[in-house]
Design a protein around this nucleic acid. Structure first.
Lengths: 108, 108
DNA sequence: AGAATATAACACCTTTTGGTTGTATGTCAA
DNA sequence: TTGACATACAACCAAAAGGTGTTATATTCT
């Protein structure tokens, strides 16, 4: 057993703009590495490294098809981010934050 | 004019677990640096650096009160993350993703 | 004024990230 | 089976992240 203890957490994975762009591309279509790499001004190898990080975060997965490796989106781990965000949502939609700060100010 | 072009984007800011914990602490209460630092097993200097990064992302702000500097949460920038997430939400709650992949498979 | 406390500002070290190039391996198609 | 294409892998490099400690500087209290 022993929990896998996610090697790369989702927050780190989505911290990079390049990786967010990759996710967006894969949201449109499954794509092979070469097609993904064409969208960026960097080497195929560099892109592959980003794909590895995204794979370790389980945000994408790749299947081999002939000589190509097709990557596909796996959005489920993003729920973790959503949950985390949920905690702070109460601070902006309504006036809770403002209220809280007023209370704080009163204490002084 | 000329967009400020956020020096540190929100995604980078929340990528670090320590910084997420700082946000949580400040969500409960405004706190001085020393009180924040007490919650971590690292030097006050290190904590200050995290506070700087969060400040540059405009997630927190500090006001000087006497000889202390009190930090307070500023959750608004998190809306950017929420919006980004919104784009992917359609891929998990409902069956859209599954549907999309079925369509893709049919193409082959 | 002088002591105590809180934060700021350096200088420095180590690990991780993001990128490069070069080489090898496997696959398809003529 | 040979040539073109697609990915894999290793070695290497530069810069940024994350951490340390030491030394100022400012504020409060006695």
């Amino acid at each position: 057993m022993a929990a896998p203890a996610e090697k790369h957490d989702v927050f780190k994975a989505i911290a990079d703009p390049t990786r967010r762009e990759v996710l967006r591309l894969l949201a449109e279509n499954d794509r092979p590495i070469s097609e993904i790499a064409d969208h960026f001004d960097m080497s195929r190898t560099a892109v592959t490294k980003h794909l590895q990080i995204l794979t370790e975060a389980e945000l994408i997965s790749g299947r081999k098809e002939g000589r190509e490796k097709i990557y596909q989106l796996h959005p489920e781990p993003l729920t973790e981010v959503k949950q985390w965000l949920g905690y702070y949502e109460k601070f902006w939609g309504n006036k809770l934050a403002m209220l809280r700060h007023l209370v704080e100010d009163d204490k002084k």
